[in-house]
Simulated scan of single mutants.
Amino acid sequence: MKHNWDDPIAAFNGMNTNQSPLQDTEASLNSTTNRPTLSQHAAPKPVDVSDKRVVNGHGDINQLAPFKYPWAWQYFLNANKNHWTPLDVNMTKDVRDYHHVLTSEEKHVYEHVLAYLTTSDILAMRNIGLAVMEKMTAPELQIYQARQVFEEAMHTWTYQHCIETIGLDQKEIYNRYRVVPEIYQKIKLANDRLDTVLRPDIDLNQPDELDTFVHSYLFFAGVFEGCWFYNGFSPIFALQRRGLMNGTAEQLQYIMRDEILHSGFGIRVVREIVKEENLTLDEARLRRMWDECEAAEEIYAGFLLADPIVGYNKEDHMEQFRFIANRRARQLKITEPFPGAENRLTWLDEQSNLRKEKNFFETRVIEYQTGAALNWD
């Protein structure tokens, strides 16, 4: 069947695909009796940069420039330098490693990391796409966040691709977040914070509502993506350091680059809102957030690493969480929650500086010419 790209579903509706549906419209517009006329409304005034704000702005959301937040546009440009798909990575060795090399403890870690991530990235997508993006009143912010929504969907595809390629039971893996309490409690904590700002009647002109939104976004940028994701890939990277599950780990390296940008962008947005709206973050509220998130992570780590794997254990995982939490707090310009925390995984930052220097027969080589030079954190 020949496609009519003006109306690709016309054939299914019994329409004549040899005539463009635009022809009738054009004929109508060319008619002297139906010729359109200009609206009598006065043209709006040009956009003034000073009218732009992160939230509660009065600029034209449909007009990109002039920029008030050029750094947001730069985030968008940087994000496009890390473009990839899970099909670009060779997973052949992962299949052999999982079925013939990994110990039962390592399989436990691998499966439950994926079980947690599959749900987390959908939650992150919903947060940006439904709770955050529509509240931004400067288009340069929304454009990067549109890319972020796409990337979260890409990450979800990646986990599904790994699960399917390895030959795991998808129904069983995807349901683990619902039946494993140690995973569910982290997801619930995030869902509860999302629900506070997902209400259709939320009004950011109201100080209490704005305060709730800022603290929610701070959690997602600083903890959910900035700590839980960043630290959440570490068990798989520990396997990679021993030459195991290299394909999965390579994909997580690309995801890690995305998430570092997501976290950095969200943190910058929070700081801008605090400055523009003259807000004061609640220190007690922040302390409760860090304590709740640390407790949730410790319960999760205790389940995930009840039996440590070679080169990785619960204690290292938790100390690294605290170390990264301090880093995010410094970016947010708030008090470090865990003074003195040590960088236990000194090799972790190296994972975000991936270079495509690989044997062609080991993986499909894709040269990200500028991406490798970016400062991802």
Rank of each mutant, 00 (worst) to 15 (best):
N4I: 06
T17L: 04
Q19A: 09
L22D: 01
T25W: 01
E26R: 05
A27R: 12
S28C: 05
N30D: 14
Q40L: 10
D60V: 08
L64T: 09
P66E: 01
L77Y: 10
T85W: 05
T85R: 07
D94T: 07
Y98S: 10
L102E: 08
E105H: 04
H112R: 05
I122P: 00
G129V: 06
T137G: 02
L141Y: 02
E151G: 01
T165Y: 09
I166W: 06
G167F: 11
Y177K: 06
A190C: 02
R193W: 12
D195L: 14
P200H: 10
I202T: 06
F213Y: 15
S216H: 01
E225P: 11
E225F: 09
R242T: 01
E250F: 12
L252Y: 14
Y254K: 03
I255Q: 11
D258G: 00
L261H: 13
G264L: 05
G266D: 04
I267C: 07
V270P: 12
V270K: 02
E272Q: 15
I273Q: 02
V274S: 07
E276F: 01
E276H: 11
L286E: 13
L286S: 11
R288M: 10
M289H: 03
W290V: 12
Y300W: 13
L305W: 00
H317I: 01
H317D: 14
Q320N: 10
L332N: 11
K333S: 06
I334G: 05
E342I: 11
W347R: 02
S352G: 02
N353H: 14
E367N: 13
D377W: 12
